[in-house]
Simulated assay, not measured.
Amino acid sequence: MPEPRVYVALVHYPVINKEGKIIASSVTNLDIHDISRICRTYGAKAYYIVQPLREQRELVKELIEYWQNGYGRVYNPDREDALKILKVVPALKVALDEIARKEGRVPLLLGTDAREKYANISFARARELVWSGEVILLLLGTAWGLAPKLIEACPYVLEPIRGRGNNYNHLSVRAAAAIILDRLLGESWWKRI
C-alpha cells in the first residue's frame, strides 16, 4: 500500500463570516501549534497557514520563532518538532505550487464544510483515496467556513462530521482537524475488535 501524501491547509481567505460575506480571518494562536501537532502526529507532509494579511503572517512567524528558537524550544521541545512542518503562505496558490513542485503533480483538493449541501464524498471513500497514494491537499476553513467559490473548486468535499443524534454542529477547526485526520490517516482500530 502506498504511503499517504496528505497536506493540510488552514485557510484564512477566502472564508465567510456569519453573514455569509467573504472575509480574511485572523489567526488564532491555538490553531498554529495545535493543528501542527495534529498534522505531525498523523503524518501530514506539511501544514500550511494561508493568510493574505502581512501583519498576520508576521505574527505567526514571531510565534513560530519563539517555539523553535526562543525559550519555547527549551520549555517544550515537542512543540518545536511539530512546528517544523508548518509553512505560512499568502495565498492558496503558493501552497499548491510548492506541493506540485515537490510531488510532481498538482494535489487533489479535498474541501471541508459543516453543511451537508456541499458534501460529495464519505470519510470511508476519502480514506481509500488517501491510501491509494493520491496527492491530497485537505482544506480547513476558519471563521464560518470556506467561501462557496473555493468549495466549488474542490473535486471532493468531505461529508460533515456528525455528532450523536442532535443537530448541533459547530466544532472548532482544531477539533475538526483531529477528527478528520484520524478518520483519514489513523490506525484501523475497528479491525482489531
Rank of each mutant, 00 (worst) to 15 (best):
A82I: 02
Y118W: 15
R73K: 15
D78Q: 12
V60A: 10
P148R: 07
V135F: 09
I85P: 00
G145M: 06
N76C: 13
H170L: 12
E3P: 03
A176V: 00
E103H: 08
V50R: 07
S172E: 05
S188R: 10
A126P: 12
I179Y: 02
S36H: 01
E65D: 15
P160L: 01
K61L: 14
E116Q: 12
R57V: 10
L63R: 15
A126F: 08
R37P: 08
A176T: 03
K191S: 15
I35R: 01
V94Y: 14
K87G: 01
W189V: 14
E187H: 11
V50Q: 06
E159D: 09
F123V: 01
A95L: 04
I136A: 04
H33A: 04
E58A: 11
A175H: 02
S188Q: 02
H33I: 05
A9D: 04
Y47F: 15
Q56E: 15
G20T: 12
I180K: 04
I193E: 14
Y118A: 03
R54A: 13
W67F: 13
P90R: 06
E159M: 06
S132F: 02
Y48P: 01
D113L: 02
E58K: 15
N167I: 10
R79I: 13
L110M: 13
N167R: 15
S188G: 02
I151S: 07
L86G: 06
A177N: 05
S25V: 07
A24W: 11
L181S: 03
A82L: 00
V6M: 14
K191M: 13
C154N: 05
T142L: 05
G72K: 11
F123S: 09
L53K: 14
P14Q: 00
S26R: 09
R79V: 13
A9N: 05
I35V: 10
P52R: 05
A82Q: 06
A143W: 04
D81G: 09
D31M: 00
D31L: 00
G186T: 07
L150Y: 13
G141S: 00
K102W: 04
W131P: 03
V88T: 10
V135P: 04
E128T: 02
I35K: 03
T28D: 12
K61A: 07
V6I: 13
N29A: 13
L140C: 06
L83Y: 11
K102L: 08
E98N: 04
L139T: 05
I32N: 03
V50W: 07
A114N: 00
P2I: 11
R40K: 13
R192Y: 15
T28E: 15
A178F: 06
P2K: 15
W67T: 04
F123N: 07
G165C: 09
L129D: 08
I99L: 11
G186K: 10
L140W: 00
D182W: 00
A24R: 12
V157C: 14
G163N: 09
R40F: 05
Y13S: 14
L53Y: 11
L138N: 13
Y168N: 09
N76Y: 12
S132K: 12
Y75E: 15
T41G: 08
R125Q: 14
G111M: 01
E55Y: 06
N120G: 07
